[in-house]
Computed example of a mutant assay.
Amino acid sequence: MAADDTAPARAWRVVLERIEGDLLDGRLAPGDRLPPERELAATLGVGRSSVREALRVLEVMGLIRTGTGSGPTSGAIIIATPRGGLAALLRLQVAAQGFPLSDVVATRLLLEQWVVGTLAESGAHDLSDVRATLAAMDDTTLTAEEFLALDAQLHLGLAEASGNAVVAASMAGLRTAIESYVQAGAARIPDWDAAATGLRAEHRGILQAIDAGEADLARSLVHDHITGYYAAAGLTRD
C-alpha cells in the first residue's frame, strides 16, 4: 500500500529527471520542443497524468512554455528565461517564512555589494531607470510605505543593471521579504522624515561611487546603507 501511495509522486519526478538529464547532456536546448505527452509516458513507463504534472512544474519554474492545439506554437517548448521561475520560487519560500530575516539580510549584503562593485568596475551600464526611481523618491509627500516600495525598486533596478540574470532573479525573489522587513522597521523609527532624508543621501552616495568607478567605496556604502537601516529600525536577528 505504501509503495502504491508514493508511486505517482515518484513518477512525475522521473519525467523531471529525464528532461534535466537531456538538458545537461545537450540533447535538449532552448527552442527545442519536448516529445508529446503520450510519447514521454510510453518511453518512461509512467502515466500521462504524471507527465502533465511534471510539465506544470517545469512551466511554473519558467523552463518551458506550453501551447494548446496543433501547429508550431503547440506542445511544450524549452525556453531560455528561467528568471521568472527562480524569482517565483523564492517568493513562495519567503511567503512561507522559510527564510530567517538574518539570512535575507546577509544575502542582500552578498548580492548588493557584488552588484555595486561590478557596476563601478564595468563602467558599461544603464542606470536611467534607477535614477528615475531615485528622483521619484524626492517627493516629500510620499508615505513611508510608498517611499520604501520605491526603495525596493531602486535596489532591484541596480541588480538588473548588473546584467547578471541569476542575481537579478534572486533580488526579485527576495523583494517581498525585503519590503516586508523594511516596512515593519519604519514603524520603529521615531523621526521618519529625517530617516528618509538620510536614505536619499545614501542612495546618491552609492550612485556617485558607481559613476566614479570606485568599487570599494560603493561596496562599503551599500553595506553601511543596509546594515544602518537594519539597526536604526531596531530589527533583531532571528
Rank of each mutant, 00 (worst) to 15 (best):
A29F: 11
P30D: 06
G31L: 11
P35C: 09
P36C: 01
P36L: 01
R38D: 15
R38H: 07
R38A: 14
E39A: 08
L40R: 00
A41Y: 00
R48L: 11
R48T: 15
S50A: 15
V51N: 04
R52Q: 14
E53R: 12
L55D: 04
V57D: 14
L58N: 05
V60H: 07
R65Y: 09
G67M: 11
G71I: 09
G71K: 02
P72E: 09
P72N: 05
P72H: 08
S74G: 06
G75K: 03
A76W: 05
I77E: 13
I77C: 07
I78D: 02
I79T: 15
A80Q: 06
A80V: 02
T81E: 15
R83P: 02
R83L: 11
G84P: 04
G85F: 10
G85Y: 09
L86F: 08
L86Q: 03
L86G: 00
A87R: 00
A88F: 07
L89I: 10
R91N: 02
Q93S: 10
A96E: 13
Q97V: 11
Q97S: 12
G98S: 05
G98H: 02
F99Q: 10
P100I: 00
L101Q: 13
S102R: 14
V105S: 06
T107D: 08
T107V: 12
L109W: 05
L109F: 08
L110F: 10
